[in-house]
C-alpha cells in the first residue's frame, strides 16, 4: 500500500539544542485480531514492527512496535542535535518492506 511518510523536523537548530520530531505514516496496522466478516477467519497480522531514526547514520531513537499501536502510527520523540546533518527515518513492515525518508537540518 502507498505509504508516504510524513515527518516534521525543524530546519534549523542551535548546537546541542533538543528538538522535537514528529512522524506519521499511513498503514492499516492489521492487528491479527480482526475476523473476516464473510469467512470468519482471522485476518493475518501485518504491521509496521520497527521504526528507527538515524542522524548522520547514528541511531538516535527506535521503537519496537506491537499490534496494539494504532493504525497510521504516530511517533514523537526528541533529539539533541550536535551539528548540521541529515536525519533518516526508517519504517519496517512485517513483510520486510522498508519505507524511509530523510530530512536535513542546519545547526548554527
Amino acid at each position: 500500500m502507498a505509504s508516504k511518510p510524513r515527518v516534521k523536523v525543524p530546519k534549523q537548530a542551535a548546537a546541542g539544542e533538543v528538538i522535537t520530531i514528529k512522524t506519521l505514516i499511513s498503514h492499516t496496522m492489521e492487528s491479527g485480531q480482526r475476523k473476516d466478516r464473510k469467512t470468519g477467519d482471522l485476518i493475518p497480522r501485518k504491521i509496521i514492527n520497527k521504526f528507527t531514526c538515524y542522524f548522520n547514520d547514528q541511531e538516535v531513537f527506535s521503537a519496537d512496535i506491537d499490534p496494539a499501536v494504532s493504525s497510521n502510527p504516530y511517533m514523537e520523540f526528541s533529539c539533541k542535535v550536535p551539528e548540521s546533518g541529515t536525519f533518516r527515518f526508517v519504517w519496517i513492515d512485517d513483510d520486510g518492506s522498508e519505507y524511509s525518508t530523510e530530512k536535513k537540518i542546519t545547526v548554527q
Binding site: V18, I19, S31, Q33, F55, Q58, E59, V60, F61, S62, A63, D64, I65, D66, P67, A68, V69, S70, P73, Y74, M75, E76, F77, S78, C79, K80, P82
Partner: peptide, 25 residues
C-alpha cells in the same frame, strides 16, 4: 489487551530527553 505488549521505545544519549509519544489501541 489480548496481548499485553504495546511498544518499546529505545533511546540513546543523542535522544536528549527520554520522552516519546504515540497512539495505542
Amino acid at each position: 489487551n489480548p496481548n499485553p505488549e504495546v511498544v518499546t521505545f529505545n533511546f540513546t544519549t543523542m535522544s536528549g530527553v527520554a520522552a516519546a509519544k504515540t497512539r495505542i489501541r
